[in-house]
Design a protein around this nucleic acid. Structure first.
Lengths: 212, 212
DNA sequence: TTAACCATGTAAACCGTTACATGATTCG
DNA sequence: CGAATCATGTAACGGTTTACATGGTTAA
């Protein structure tokens, strides 16, 4: 064991723990609008927030960690009745800088596929009938999601015409919608083309059955 | 040490731990071809295996767990020189059944986005110049991946024409390629459309700058 | 001589999910 | 009367990553 590699940590305490993806997601949302932990959870359920579901049990410790790092601060909002007070978090200047630097940094391509695609890898040993069923099911689900996205996008564009918020943020958002809509379209088209193939093969097999 | 494995352990112990996605990935690969843990790791680096990278430290315990469940068995292949013996794993009948049942089961839609897309969510506070750089970079990476997929697909189709392996498995594989190629095409198209938008806006801003 | 290849594993640290905990209010 | 909503958290568990461990061969 040779070099101890001091360097790099130069300043005493600095940041003990590096940032996680989760923390950047939270920063990303808080940068647009100050919110409490609970608000973040409900916000994540909206169809136009592109981060998956995150449970509150992860969010509260993460917010505390961001605060320790000086990237967010909160002020307490008292609630009516006996409810616990709300802690509304917002970014500090350091937080905004950290988020911008992260967004501006290069990203390597690491691909992860969805579970249905993984199953498709072992499709060849499945029962054809049941597989057709599953692909129909999947096509249905993606179609619904696509319809939802298109609907939200439409109502969002109406809001732009009404001039209710800053056009800048909205324009950027449409960029995100472009992607997810394209994604769903591709998935749907794939399901349909596989269905076509499977059903064609089914008919071939049944005819072969008659001949034999 | 002959294996003890008391016939599924009837009711008493049954399966302590449920199957993980990782274990199904391994089953999926082993169903196509018997392999050792090391082989699995190298196989995962091939561009036509659609599971992400899996480290060997996960694979070895997972294989042991699959064996305890009676879904795989192995035979030892001695290596030349001092190298440790290879354990070549293959599916048992129970393993094949478990994999088929998993592949045939319904899959809920749970969406997860890639890291670059997450960054795009906070694009609005990034420096436009640097963002253009990153989108170019990303477009490049996806273009390369697309070219790779198309190349592999082509050489695979040549292999079919030469009749080297069962057509059935190959046909199913092309189904997977259809998807990943579509995916990359969509991503690339998205990057390019965003680039167009960003560059257009850049020129507008520089003209405004001249006027002011 | 350093790195990469072959081949297997264990141990600790880290991240995410599930279960537990509280407690008033409102809707079906 | 049970379930959902608001609002915050801790503790245990399980899956993943990174570091540690071994050890001979081959190519840059």
């Amino acid at each position: 064991m040779t070099y101890v590699n001091v360097l790099h940590m130069a300043c005493g305490t600095r940041e003990r723990n590096p940032m996680t993806t989760l923390e950047y997601k939270l920063l990303g949302m808080l940068a647009r609008q100050p919110m409490s932990g609970y608000d973040l959870v409900s916000h994540l359920k909206q169809p136009f927030v592109p981060f998956g579901p995150i449970s509150h049990t992860q969010i509260y410790p993460a917010l505390a960690s961001l605060e320790r790092k000086g990237l967010v601060r909160y002020h307490i909002v008292e609630q009516q009745a006996v409810r616990p007070d709300k802690k509304v978090y917002e970014l500090t200047e350091e937080g905004r800088t950290a988020l911008r630097q992260w967004a501006e940094s290069p990203t390597p391509l690491v691909f992860s596929y969805d579970e249905f695609f993984l199953k498709a890898y072992s499709l060849w040993l499945a029962d054809p009938e049941r597989m057709i069923e599953r692909f129909r099911e999947q096509a249905q689900l993606h179609q619904e999601k696509l319809a939802l996205y298109e609907q939200v996008l439409q109502s969002k564009q109406l809001a732009i015409n009404a001039g209710s918020e800053q056009a800048d943020v909205f324009e950027e958002r449409d960029v995100l919608f472009q992607y997810v809509i394209g994604y769903e379209q591709n998935y749907l088209a794939w399901c349909q083309s596989v269905l076509q193939y499977l059903e064609q093969r089914k008919h071939q097999h049944s005819q072969e059955g008659k001949q034999v």
